[in-house]
C-alpha cells in the first residue's frame, strides 16, 4: 500500500504542522472500528485519501457552532477518559453562547481546568473573557467564528482572507491568545500562528437551524429559544446548486464548503496546526478507508 511508505506528517521526524482530529467519542470509536483511525502511542495514525500518512496528536472535542451541543459533564468526562487512554491532549471547542449557555459552558471549563495541555477554542468574546478571568490555566485559542473571513463557494477565490491588524494582535496577546483558527490562509504570512481546518470551511451559521425542526410540529420548528434534542447528531445534508461546483454540507446549524486537504499552502510556516474535522466529514470522505499501515 503506497501510503505506508509515505512520510508521516506531524511527527518529530517530519517537522511541520501538528495534526489534530476533531471528533466526539462516538465518531472516534466508529473511525477506529472502520480502520480509518488506528490507535498508536500518543494519538491516532491515518491515511488521507491523497495517500499521505498523518499522525493525529491532539483531540478537538465539543461543539463549535451550536450552543445546544455543548457537552454535558458526563459527555465531557467520556472525552477526557478517551484522551487519557490515547495519551493525547484535548482542546475544547466552544460555540457562540447565550447567557444561559455560557453558564453551562462554565461547568465544562471547570472540568477541563487542571488537565495538562488543555486548550479552549473560543468562538465568543465572552468565552474568551471568561477563560481569561476564571480559568487562566487553559490555553485560549481564537475560533473561526471570531475571525470574520469572507468565503463563498460561488466565488472562484475567497473575497477576504482575514488578515489581522496590529491592534487586534496586541489585544489578543493581552488575552493570552497565540493561536488563531482559520478556514483559509491570508495572502501574506500571518504574524500569529494559525490552526487551519480541513477538509471543510464553514461559510454560514445561525440560530434558525434546519435540522432542529425535525420531529417538531410546524409551529415549533426552527425556534432557537427551545431546548433541542439534537436530531442533527450523526446526520449531514448535502445541498446542491448549479452555482456551486461541489455540494455544500449542512452539519448541525452550519453550512460548510469542501476545501479538501493537502496542497502547498499547508507547508507554510505560519500554519502551526492542521485540524481534521472528522465529525464534519461524516463519511470520512477524505480518509482512505480500511486498515492503515503503522508509521
Amino acid at each position: 500500500m503506497a501510503a505506508v511508505s509515505q512520510p508521516v506528517a506531524g511527527t518529530a521526524a517530519t517537522p511541520g504542522p501538528e495534526w489534530a482530529v476533531g471528533a466526539g467519542v462516538r465518531e472516534i470509536r466508529a473511525a477506529e472500528a472502520a480502520g480509518s483511525l488506528r490507535p498508536v502511542d500518543g494519538g491516532w495514525s491515518t491515511t488521507l485519501a491523497s495517500g499521505e500518512s498523518v499522525l493525529f496528536r491532539r483531540l478537538y472535542a465539543g461543539a463549535e457552532f451550536c450552543r445546544h451541543l455543548i457537552p454535558s459533564r458526563a459527555q465531557w468526562t467520556a472525552v477526557l477518559a478517551l484522551a487519557r487512554r490515547r495519551r493525547v491532549p484535548v482542546t475544547l471547542r466552544t460555540p457562540p453562547v447565550t447567557e444561559e449557555a455560557l453558564a453551562r459552558l462554565a461547568i465544562v471549563l471547570r472540568a477541563l481546568s487542571g488537565v495538562q495541555g488543555a486548550e479552549v477554542v473560543a468562538n465568543d468574546w465572552g468565552t474568551l473573557r471568561l477563560v481569561h478571568r476564571r480559568f487562566p490555566g487553559l490555553r485560549p485559542i481564537l475560533g473561526r467564528c471570531l475571525r470574520r473571513q469572507k468565503k463563498d463557494p460561488r466565488v472562484g477565490e475567497l473575497a477576504m482572507s482575514g488578515a489581522m491588524s496590529p491592534e487586534t494582535l496586541d489585544l489578543l496577546a493581552r488575552w493570552g491568545v497565540d493561536l488563531v483558527e482559520a478556514d483559509c490562509l491570508p495572502d501574506d504570512a500571518s504574524p500569529i500562528a494559525l490552526a487551519l481546518h480541513l477538509p471543510f470551511a464553514f461559510v454560514a451559521s445561525g440560530s434558525l437551524c434546519l435540522l432542529s425542526g425535525l420531529g417538531r410540529p410546524v409551529e415549533e420548528k426552527f425556534r432557537p429559544d427551545r431546548p433541542c434534542r439534537a436530531p442533527c447528531r450523526g446526520r449531514a445534508v448535502r445541498l446542491h446548486h448549479p452555482a456551486c461546483r461541489a455540494p455544500l454540507l449542512l452539519r448541525e446549524n452550519t453550512f460548510f464548503a469542501a476545501r479538501g486537504v493537502g496542497g502547498p499552502p499547508l507547508a507554510r510556516p505560519d500554519v502551526a496546526r492542521l485540524v481534521y474535522d472528522l465529525d464534519t466529514d461524516v463519511d470520512r470522505s477524505f480518509l482512505r478507508p480500511g486498515p492503515v499501515g503503522r508509521p
Binding site: Q149, K150, V155
Partner: peptide, 14 residues
C-alpha cells in the same frame, strides 16, 4: 436566514 455576523458568504452579486 443565518446569523448576520456568522454569514460569511458574499450577498452580491450572487
Amino acid at each position: 436566514g443565518f446569523e448576520e455576523g456568522l454569514c460569511l458568504n458574499v450577498h452580491r452579486p450572487f
